[in-house]
Design a protein around this nucleic acid. Structure first.
Lengths: 247, 247
DNA sequence: CTCGAGTCAAGAGCATTGTTCATTTTGTGA
DNA sequence: TCACAAAATGAACAATGCTCTTGACTCGAG
């Protein structure tokens, strides 16, 4: 689509046309973000974006097939940004040779930090952009699991070195759950025991629940700002994982 | 507004006018629900509702000031429905003299059950219906905390009888957090120690995070259906609260 | 019984939206 | 220079939320 002929653009100097094309796409997304930040995701108006660019609204459709597709692209960007910061934190934690507890804390706090600094993005990512959820963009899922992968790796390292010792699956339905987690592990080549994956889910759901309630102003007002609450919650998760927080 | 004169309507036979008024309001809400269930919350069209009622769209504005206000009313209804079922479960658990663990499980599973059976409602409740979140309808908040109150009472009873023993707040910022939780307890006359309220938040965030990720199809596909995962998560929460699940 | 205040609904209308389509302009490679 | 493809236009369609005016209806007080 980008190149009108069959030449692959990657190993050749990008033509000027393609450059400005990418740039316009970026500008559209940029303006869309600022508009979303002010009025919320579903108040985004393609016409307003076009207006602000000095374009006609119909011209936008050369760059994005529909409003929904634009929102999808924005969601991919947002998930990507979150994943980038998490990976960066992971790298630094590795360089600094942090122990399991502090490493876990660094990652989860960075997760929340990003969400607090990008509330609009977070809402777009996790607040149903579209009606049909199951057939979301594959790119969206990929970027999303790039972020979750940092969590699973954190678990993997901790379990491997013995600093994290998740409790065995002890509920009545443990068999079925273990099977499902195993399927997940196989599909994504995670090479993690079911216990570790379960612990990862435990962390993620706690993480997301806390952040989501905080961002959507559902927490009782006295607990705001919620930094302390969040740190406590993550400490509890650590305890449940058999790690003593703040050792 | 409902009564044109100063008479309080509660201790007098409701006038016919008021009856049909309430009924129309109810019908509007009913139709709005079915429409939301099909197409999602932001695809709700007042005109379509009016059309289906054989009315003009402008007539609707005699019953709801705006689309936003209608959505607010729906959210109140939804929160109320959730709170009702939770209170019902609480009552049954009390009658059956359940122990702390099973009682906790009954309540949290009922919470999820409701969410799974009313996904559209749940999205409307927790998925930012409006832009400004801080000045939400007071009625909305009230109905919402009526549901949360079931959780806090569950904690209160458990702590009182010693079956729930939440760990002391041990993080560095414990002082501040405890103060905030105390403020919350005072404001709502909960008469609960900070530890119990912290445990309650731990439960609620976990609960909401798990349900929200499940409903919004963010969990990795192999773990669906997520009943087993949810039960495991709640079991872990119980463990963290010092209660042995499935005792 | 009558009349007037209060209520309800209709219908036209405004500003706005997403999206399409035929047309024109513009840039670029040969 | 020229032809062709990409880019941008402007008009149009169908739909939305919401307002305003205008005409009916209800119902209780005089």
């Amino acid at each position: 689509m980008l190149c009108h002929n069959g030449v692959i653009a990657s190993d050749v100097i990008p033509r000027r046309r393609d450059r400005v094309r990418i740039e316009t796409r970026a500008e559209i997304k940029r303006l869309a973000w600022t508009q979303i930040a002010q009025e919320g995701a579903d108040a985004l108006s393609l016409r307003a974006v076009a207006r602000e660019m000095g374009m006609t609204s119909s011209a936008l459709y050369r760059y994005f097939e529909s409003k929904e597709q634009l929102l999808d692209a924005l969601a991919v960007e947002a998930f990507g940004s979150l994943a980038d910061t998490l990976e960066e934190v992971e790298r630094r934690a590795h360089d600094d040779e942090l122990e399991a507890g502090p490493r876990f804390m660094a990652i989860t706090c960075a997760y929340r930090q990003w969400a607090v600094e990008h509330p609009t993005e977070y809402r777009l990512m996790f607040g149903v952009p579209v009606a049909d959820l199951d057939d979301r963009n594959e790119a969206t899922k990929a970027e999303m699991y790039r972020g979750v992968a940092v969590l699973t790796r954190c678990m993997a390292v901790g379990v491997a070195e013995g600093s994290i010792q998740p409790a065995p699956l002890a509920i009545a339905q443990a068999e079925r759950l273990a099977g499902r987690l195993q399927m997940w592990s196989d599909r994504d080549d995670l090479h993690l025991p079911a216990e570790a994956l379960a612990a990862c889910m435990f962390t993620w759901t706690q993480l997301h629940g806390a952040i989501s309630l905080e961002l959507f102003s559902h927490l009782p007002t006295p607990v705001y700002p919620a930094d302390d609450l969040f740190e406590y919650l993550m400490g509890e998760v650590l305890r449940a994982l058999g790690v003593h927080p703040r050792l």
